[in-house]
């Protein structure tokens, strides 16, 4: 009986995206898919481009997502304006990410305005989460 328990614990602890599934995150993704006109699936690659692009329209201290989240979303970041530490965004190291719809919407609203200088589209939000789910 002990061995299956150890195996189970080991699997739970392993940073494997296959075990990072969460029905609340799935529901958030599904909502963005519904709001995405002409939806043809979300793309991790587009999400990564969004994450790394140097935008022009936002706050000059936060020209890209990486300004606070660093180039590696599996690493902790730091708020470029306040200095406050930020937990990693990658789901593999921070399973709580993208599990509270209200929080996700609030953060996108604030961050997109600051980084892109505009709201993000449902497609961009879905792409971003899809990228972070593979990270």
């Amino acid at each position: 009986m002990i061995r299956p328990v150890i195996l189970g614990v080991a699997l739970l602890l392993a940073p494997n995206p296959a075990f990072a599934g969460d029905s609340r995150r799935d529901a958030i993704i599904a909502d963005y898919a519904k709001a995405d006109t002409g939806h043809a699936g979300f793309s991790a690659q587009r999400g990564e481009t969004l994450f790394r692009t140097q935008w022009k329209g936002g706050d000059e201290r936060t020209p890209s997502c990486t300004a606070c989240h660093t180039d590696n979303p599996r690493q902790p970041g730091r708020n470029a304006k306040t200095g406050r530490p930020i937990d990693p965004v990658a789901v593999s190291v921070n399973a709580k990410r993208f599990t509270d719809a209200g929080e996700v919407e609030k953060q996108f609203t604030r961050d997109c305005k600051n980084v892109l200088g505009r709201e993000c589209t449902a497609r961009e939000k879905g792409d971003y989460i899809t990228f972070m789910m593979g990270q």
């Binding site: 730091r78 708020n79 470029a80 304006k81 306040t82 200095g83 406050r84």
Partner: peptide
């Protein structure tokens, strides 16, 4: 690590 004067915990 400081970034701004309001970052007290730094």
């Amino acid at each position: 690590k400081v970034v701004t004067k309001s970052n007290c915990p730094a």
